[in-house]
């Protein structure tokens, strides 16, 4: 069946066009400013404080002001990695790290599973309804985060709204224990961070090309196959962006586990807080913070790999 179509473009005569070659040169000064300003901001408000924290983490606590030994004493450099060695050997810190990563990962997955259908429905809604739904997603931001977490306490307390409604209806005999459990921490994190998952997913899904889904259907794909082979893969950048926006802040979360969690949901943010304000061991707290940054950055680099590989 195959007399070849005589080649119009003669195969091979078109090298892959270098994407966005042109249009970079003009306005070089302006570009420089655009790049330099955030760089300046980041160095002043992130890099410099981080270096200070890293320096403190190499010292020892001291009853003085500030409450740690300086990096350079009378005998020269006197920093060491004692605090890091301690973190790695102390089971409290290790388990708090692992717990934070686990809770952040599970919360991210839950937010993804809940947020994806929501984002999809919003992105496929006709215009006036779409704006309303988006508005509803960002509506919680209009009240303080702390207030909303307190509201969750009111809902999940032993004598809170959920328990009193359920016992009035006769569904339960004894009140459900929801507060001070990992469950409450998941409810709190997913509820709080869901918009950060939905918005990038929405942005990715609203740009989808409907004709691609039609082409897939035309070639014999049912609705689910279209979703898994076309819609989902093409929205992966949104999935990655949303996951990072949830995972990273949840790892360092302090308020939610402190207010809603119990002993089995101890997260590294709480440990850091305790080291800093209760034990007043600034160098140890600083090393906890430095390691936490590593814990956050590593998955970030990994995700970037995943995105770039596509």
């Amino acid at each position: 069946m195959t007399a070849p179509l005589s080649s119009p473009g003669t195969a091979g005569s078109h090298p892959p066009t270098p994407a966005r070659r042109a249009g970079g040169r003009q306005g070089g000064g302006f570009r420089l400013i655009i790049v330099l300003l955030p760089l300046l901001f980041l160095s002043v408000f992130f890099a410099a404080p981080f270096l200070v924290v890293a320096a403190i983490s190499l010292g020892d606590p001291m009853l003085a002001r500030p409450p740690y030994t300086p990096l350079f004493g009378p005998d020269g450099f006197q920093g060491d990695l004692e605090n890091y060695a301690f973190l790695l050997t102390d089971s409290l810190y290790l388990s708090a790290y692992l717990n934070a990563v686990k809770i952040a990962a599970v919360a991210t997955l839950l937010a993804l599973l809940i947020g994806y259908p929501m984002a999809y429905v919003i992105a496929t809604s006709p215009e006036p309804r779409r704006a309303v739904l988006l508005m509803l997603v960002v509506l919680p931001f209009w009240t303080s985060f702390l207030l909303r977490v307190y509201a969750l306490i009111g809902l999940m307390n032993t004598n809170g709204l959920i328990n009193s409604v359920l016992s009035t209806l006769g569904v339960i005999d004894a009140p459900l224990v929801m507060r001070q459990t990992v469950f409450a921490v998941y409810v709190g994190t997913v509820y709080t961070y869901l918009p950060f998952m939905i918005l990038p997913l929405y942005a990715a899904l609203v740009r989808r090309d409907e004709s691609l889904a039609e082409a897939a259907a035309d070639l014999g794909a049912g609705a689910w196959t279209v979703f898994f082979t076309v819609t989902l893969p093409l929205s992966l950048p949104g999935v990655v962006a949303g996951s990072m926006l949830v995972f990273i802040p949840v790892i360092g979360e302090y308020v939610i586990p402190a207010l809603l969690g119990g002993p089995d949901s101890l997260m590294i943010g709480q440990v850091l807080w305790n080291a800093f304000f209760s034990a007043r061991d600034w160098p140890l707290a600083a090393s906890v913070a430095v390691v936490m940054l590593g814990v956050v950055v590593l998955p970030l680099l990994f995700l970037r790999r995943v995105v770039e590989a596509r």
Partner: peptide, 16 residues
Amino acid sequence: AYARPTNMMFQSYALF
């Protein structure tokens, strides 16, 4: 669409 004995070449090509 997926069960029809037709195939379509799209105006925009719609390549994945």
